[in-house]
Each structure stands twice: as C-alpha cells, then as structure tokens.
Design a protein around this nucleic acid. Sequence first.
DNA 1: CAAAATCTTGACAACAATTTCAAATAATGA
DNA 2: TCATTATTTGAAATTGTTGTCAAGATTTTG
Lengths: 341, 341
Amino acid sequence: MAHATIKDIAKKTGFSIATVSRVLSGSDYPTSPETKRFIEQAAKELGYVPNILARSLKTSASEEVAVIIPSIMNLFYSNMVMGIEEGLSRNGYSMLIYLMNGHSDRRAILKSIRGKRISGVIIAADCISEDIVSQLTALRKEDVPVVVTDYKPVTAESFHGVFFDYRIGGQMATNYLLKLGHEHIAYLTMSIDRTSRANLWEGFRMALENAQKPVSPDDKFVSDNLSEFEAGKELAGMMLDSGRKYSAIIANNDSVAVGIMIELARRGIRVPEDISVMGFDDSVFSQMSFPALTTIRVDAEMIGKQASELVLLEREGRAIGYSVYLEPSVIERQSVSAFGK
Amino acid sequence: MAHATIKDIAKKTGFSIATVSRVLSGSDYPTSPETKRFIEQAAKELGYVPNILARSLKTSASEEVAVIIPSIMNLFYSNMVMGIEEGLSRNGYSMLIYLMNGHSDRRAILKSIRGKRISGVIIAADCISEDIVSQLTALRKEDVPVVVTDYKPVTAESFHGVFFDYRIGGQMATNYLLKLGHEHIAYLTMSIDRTSRANLWEGFRMALENAQKPVSPDDKFVSDNLSEFEAGKELAGMMLDSGRKYSAIIANNDSVAVGIMIELARRGIRVPEDISVMGFDDSVFSQMSFPALTTIRVDAEMIGKQASELVLLEREGRAIGYSVYLEPSVIERQSVSAFGK
DNA sequence: CAAAATCTTGACAACAATTTCAAATAATGA
DNA sequence: TCATTATTTGAAATTGTTGTCAAGATTTTG
C-alpha cells in the first residue's frame, strides 16, 4: 500500500469520499464535529497525505511559483531567491527555480511552466530575451501573474514588477562623490548590454552634467570578461593605462570593485588615499574586502520579498498591474575618502 | 478557452483521444505516420501544452526533484545547487528548492514533498535533524530515492549519497603545511556541532600525531558567531590573544579564512610572511582575497552533479544504495609560504 | 482464396481529488 | 401534527491524461 487515499479513509470510516474530502481539504462546508474528529483520526492513523497532483488538477491551480534567474552564483540573485522563498513559504507556496545558463532551452522552460499550471512567475529582467516575451504574454493571458525583478526591461515595457532604478542609484553614487570634492570620476563596468549597467552610466552622466562638470564617454571603461572579479582587475588596468587621471571610481557592482582594488593594490596604489573606489549592491563582498567597500545598497532580498508578495496578490485577483520601485541608499565604509585627504 | 486539451485536438482532427495521447505523449505505441503528422499539426495550431498534473497523476510520477538545503547565501550550497540543476535539467527534470531557515516548518516541507509525488530528494547533511530521519525513511519506503550530500550524517548512517571526507581533507591540509616545515598549526573554526568541522579537526589531529608532532585541544579555536566572516575576525583575535605561537592557520572554510586575514592585516601581521593561512572549499572568496588563499578544494558543483545523477539512477531502479566519495586536493595560491621564509 | 498475423484505431476504465445536486435526517414553527 | 426549514451526508460528474482490451482494416502466409 503505497499511499492512503480519501477512498481508503472513506472505507475505513464508513463515510463517503465526499465527506472525507470536505473534512480533509479544509473546506468550509459544514460537517458535524464528531465525524470530523473521526475522519481526522483515521487520516492520521493511515498516514494520509493529500495528493497535490489530483487536487491541483481539479482546482486547476498548483501552489508553486516559478523563479527564473540567470544564475545562482551571483550573490544578487541568491539574495533575491532568499527573499522570495521567505515570502512564498510563509503563504504555503513553494518555489521552482529555473536557471537560464546558456545550455538550458528557454522555450522548454516556459512550456514546462505552462504545463504545470504554475501559480505565478517571477523572472529576473536579465532573463527576458525577445523570444520569451511572447511566451510570457501568453502566460499572462492565461491569468498567470508574471512579475519582473531588478529593472524594467525595454523589450517588455508592459510587464510590471519590483524594480530598482539604477539611474537614480548612479546619480546618488556620483553626487556622493561630488560632494566629497571629487571631480574626475571613472565608471568601470562589465559589458553594458544589460540595461541596469547602461542606466547606471546614464545616472552617472546626468549627475555630472547637473553639477556642470565635464564628462566624456572615455570616462566609461568596459570589459567583456565573464568573471566579474577578473573584469575588475582588467578594468583597473585599462583605466590606469589610459593616461587619464581620476580621483574616484564607480564600479558596476561589488565583485568588480573588489577586482579593481586587488589590481590597484598589486600596482602599489592605495585605496582610498590615492584613489576612492565605490561599489554597487552592498553584497557580502563589500564587507569582506580590504578596505571595506563604500557602496550603494540594492536590497535584493527585499526585491525578492516584494516580488513574491506581488505575485500572490495578483493571483488573488487584487493588485493587477502595479510596479514597486525600491529606494537606493549609500552605505559608507572605508574605500572612499574626501578628495585630497 | 484557457488551455487546449487532447480532447480538443481529438475533436478537431476526428481521431479519438486515445490516439491523440499516443502521438503527443511520445509513447512508442505505433501510429501511422500521416495521422501522427496530422495530430502534431493540430496540436501546434491549438498551442497545446500537456497538463503535467494530469499526466503525473496517472503515471504517479512527477518529474521534479526536491532539494533541501539550509541556505542559499552560502556559496557552498549555491555551487551545489548549480551542479544539481545542470544534472537535472539535462534529463528533463526540474528542481524544487526548500530552504531550511529556522522559520520554515520541517515537517510541512516533508509532507509537501510526499504530497507532490516528487521523484527524488537531495538533502544536505546539515538539514538532517533527528525528527526528520523518520520522515525520510518513510519516503524511501515509498520508493522515493533520497540522496544525502556533503558528509555522512551520524544520525542517518543508512542513507547514502555523495560525500566529501573532511577527515581526509583535514589530513591533507595539515600534511601540506607540515611538509613546508610548519610545526605549530592552529585550527580556527565556527561552532563544531556540524560533523564536517569535527571531522576536519579529527583529520588535523591525526596528521599531526602521525608526524609525531605535539597537538593539544587548545590548538582548536571555536567561535559561535553566526556570520562566517565575523567569526573569522573573532577567531584571529582569540588566537593572537591566547599567547600561543603559531606559524600557520587552517580555517574551516574560505569565508572564515578571509575574516582571519582581515583581522591579521588590521593588527599589522603579514600573510604569508608572518603567518600562513589556509582556507577550505575553494570558493570565489579564495581568489578575491588579498593575498589569494591557498585552500583545499571541495568541489561543491561536482557534488551536486553527482547527487543529481545518483537520484536519477536510483529512480530508474538501478544503483540502489551506493555512495560516492569525492577526492580533496590542495589548491596552491599565495597565503601560505614555507616556514621561516 | 481462406486463414492467420499485423497495423491502426477507438471505447472505456483508471488516477485521486473537488464539487454540484439531491436525498435523508433532524429541528423548528404554526 | 404536519409542513417547513436547516443540517448533514452521499452519488455521481469532472479535471486531463494514460493504458488496457478489443475491434476493424490491412497485409501476409499456406
């Protein structure tokens, strides 16, 4: 006897499967207290566990949410997943993670999601490629809520979600450095095909222009290295070899910033005495580097938590189509000092 | 019309649902090539996606594997998850992640797994508490393969899985330092209630004894700090303040090692000139620290990959009950030098 | 050319639950 | 006391598949 079913319980107790179902499914349909106790007792004795597949088939709703992210090795995403999991498990939902590393077939993922009658989808903006937008739209037409995280993707404007405004973040970082007296600031970034990084540069540029400071595209250094850390080392070299003089650096994230600092140290350049370095994200790296990184906090866990709440709200039919924008903030540590100090 | 079903396709093509099912389920049951093409065409036109719930209900097997880990913020586990996902998605399975942070109810997790007719379970040894062993045993009795990772848990000896022998790893690290001429070595670790850390100490002790070197329990420093990085800083302080002299340190993992190095740097002690530091795991931290960490490689991704293969093998009825042990190896970088150099 | 074997297809019963509708029983009111 | 209402239960349909069994059509064989 593999699994006890409500049929077994019905047979054992003498009641019909209908009443057993009513008791065990937590339905609000009235049943007399004694039969309820009786049935519950039998269920416990037989070690009954409801078959979610059958239940979901009937109610056409599985209590699972799909989470689609590029990788889990990136602290930003693992933080986000942490937040999502908390929000979901608190409501009795579980989380199906799909990793979009090149090798996995994107269409197969979406198909699998549709086939499973998933309750909702949380997808990181970086996973939204052209060919997937139509699939997501189809999903939404089937009343499956889709929530995007990180930033609003240009290819899918109509989708809403929980976003961080990297433009404002970039402005904030730049203004912070400006206020400390820095005038020549470089933006060191990994390849800029991700909108978040382009927006960061946009914010950077706007802040400098607003302050009437000169800014040139040459102040942006780009590396296509796949490893964030290696990219950082490479970028520091590029900047130093460019001949242009900078008193401060903004990196597109903390890992890159750490790579930058390591390369600077190797070349005998002190941080922050000789040059200030500012990170982005406020991941663990920012505390584990030497000196500890001054950075812009992007609360990935909060993004995840809010995203899970948004999905669940929409599923209940409430809250259709609004977005949340999270506030950036500066976290001051030791890698930045006032200009000339 | 929310979802097209095989019934719809049957109606449209004029065939019975039986033949439609045979064509669309990829069954090896013979059908004439033309009807096959005809039905596949209709399926595409209607945007048919098979309802996995119904299929699984009938075949009583969902192609999902549950992964139970303590946290995803720990690089060891995220690496492992990476490996698992690769192994599973390659075989058309998907992965359900359950995080066992205090707040989530352990029993509820296992119940949910049983209810979903999950195909297999991969569980990190650190998640196996007394009260869960019986649930896992029940699961196994229902022919659901259970694979444990990381280390063989004492409370669940009968379970098999993919393990790393921390005792041998500890021996290897210690022997490596001994060969470089170090005689006074300290083991700095987070709380030792995890078997892996106790085993590491065991290996450490054995190696020193085999080499006829003195070893005392005082050479083991333990911190209960929850943050690995903070624990490292704390431990470095404890060691320094103990008055005992050491020329080398072994940390229970890379994050702790980084914390140790930061604190040493703060106190003006140079690594490796004044003292050598050895990590454990070979996570990204080991490359991002300064100096780069010499460490013992624990290939978490490989553990995950092998675990996924083991689950799938067992599900097919083959490979019942064997375990895999992974080989440790020393990764030489810059945080260790020969004694006196 | 009839009989046997092979190919295709269809009807229908599972799978394990939920839910609608109706029936039986108990309680209430005139 | 009888009709009416409220309470509790059961029978049966439904969800979308798969799989068994049998039947019809077609081909092969003696």
